[in-house]
Computed example of a mutant assay.
Amino acid sequence: MGSNENLENLLRSGGLKLEPPDRKECEGLMRSASDRLMDAKTASLSFASRFDLAYNAAHAIALTNLRLQGYRSDKRYLVFQCLVHTSDVSKVHVRLFALCHERRNLAEYEGYLDEDEALLAQLLDSTGRLLIAVQQQMGEL
């Protein structure tokens, strides 16, 4: 998708940093994401474990996408927000990832996680779609 004004603004504000893509890093992130996504579908695991695995898979894929564009961010939420500028991911999916980020933070920092199986199903589906899109993008390089 390439650079655009929104990414340049984030670069100027310090939210993003320029860093050339590293194929080895991206392959490692995608391998980790694929494994986590597969494990997140294991019904015998607790909800908290499945959600954590799915969320972290989504983050790794979104980070890979950002890295492929030549950027890096230390802010987890920005990695998801940048998807609308770096890929064909819809704003609906980005909002889902943002909601899951908020839920992850509640669980991580406040010890509260609402067991929402419908949300987890949506996260698994959206993460699977993102995985395929970024795999295709990597294949084009």
Rank of each mutant, 00 (worst) to 15 (best):
A98E: 11
V92E: 12
R76D: 00
S126I: 05
L45C: 02
S90P: 09
T86R: 02
V92G: 03
E27P: 02
D125S: 15
L83G: 04
R95K: 13
A43Y: 11
A107V: 07
F51T: 07
A118Q: 12
I132R: 15
L7K: 08
R76N: 06
L99F: 01
H85L: 00
R129V: 09
D116G: 11
K91I: 01
A54V: 02
R36G: 04
E115Q: 13
A33N: 08
A118D: 13
S46H: 10
M30A: 01
D88M: 15
N4K: 04
A43G: 12
G2R: 10
G2V: 08
F80G: 04
A40W: 12
E115P: 14
S87W: 03
T127E: 04
F80Y: 10
R103M: 03
D39A: 14
D116L: 08
K41C: 04
S32A: 08
C26H: 02
R95E: 11
Q135M: 11
I61V: 13
L63D: 04
L124Q: 12
A98S: 14
L131M: 10
Y71E: 01
C100D: 11
P20D: 13
R31I: 03
L78F: 00
E140H: 08
D52W: 10
R50Y: 07
Y112V: 13
A133R: 12
F47E: 06
C100Y: 05
S32Q: 05
A33K: 09
M138D: 03
V94G: 09
G28E: 15
E110C: 08
E25Y: 06
E102M: 11
L66S: 00
L123C: 02
P20Y: 14
G14V: 05
K75V: 02
E25K: 10
E108L: 09
L16Q: 00
S46G: 14
R76T: 12
A60G: 06
L16D: 04
V92K: 10
E117N: 01
N9M: 10
D39Q: 15
P20T: 14
L16R: 03
M38E: 11
L124I: 06
L113D: 03
G28N: 12
L113K: 08
D39T: 11
V79C: 01
A98Y: 11
R31Q: 01
R129I: 12
E115W: 12
R129Y: 06
G15V: 10
L29I: 03
Y55D: 10
E102D: 14
E102T: 13
D116I: 07
F80I: 09
L141E: 12
G139R: 13
L120M: 05
L120H: 05
A40R: 13
L37K: 02
R72Q: 00
T42H: 09
Q81A: 07
L53H: 08
R72D: 00
R129P: 01
E140G: 01
Q81P: 07
G111K: 08
L123I: 02
R95L: 10
R67D: 00
L68C: 01
L7C: 13
R72S: 00
E108I: 06
